[in-house]
Amino acid sequence: MAVCIGVIAKENYPLYIRCAPNVENEVNFHFTVHTSLDVIEEKVASLGKSTSISTTDLREFYLGQLYPSEDYRIYGYVTNTKVKFVIVVEAANTQLRDNEVRSMFRRLHNAYTDVICNPFHVPGDKIKSKSFDSVASSMIVPERKKENPLVI
């Protein structure tokens, strides 16, 4: 289960960021999502270089784990329209496997597509959709245990 889910527009501004309830310093997750763009950009650029133009449409959206962090694992996903999805998972959560992360991204992508298909949604606006919200919150850790503050 994720602790934070972020959707970032093509122009790199946030469309949607949701963190697990009870997290302290939510803005730190905003930073995490923001900084992951560095790696996403680099990965997308290298993908574009290695594959020919004809295959770019068929390329893998899932970018895998982005950069190492001791406490969290950060996964990235880029759509064809360069909308980025970022999922932050606690490093302690070792059960989560790679293909589960993939399926989470796929669900997010589908939910995002639904948002975009809404005729009342202005593309580029922040996502204010209940259905998207429910999809996202279904992937987020429901309630974080109040941990011993000594635990790092």
């Binding site: 501004y13 939510e26 803005v27 905003h30």
Partner: peptide
């Protein structure tokens, strides 16, 4: 940079 990329949450902080 945050102003340009419209990361309001961070910018406000």
């Amino acid at each position: 940079a945050y102003r340009e990329s419209r990361w309001c949450s961070i910018l406000t902080q």
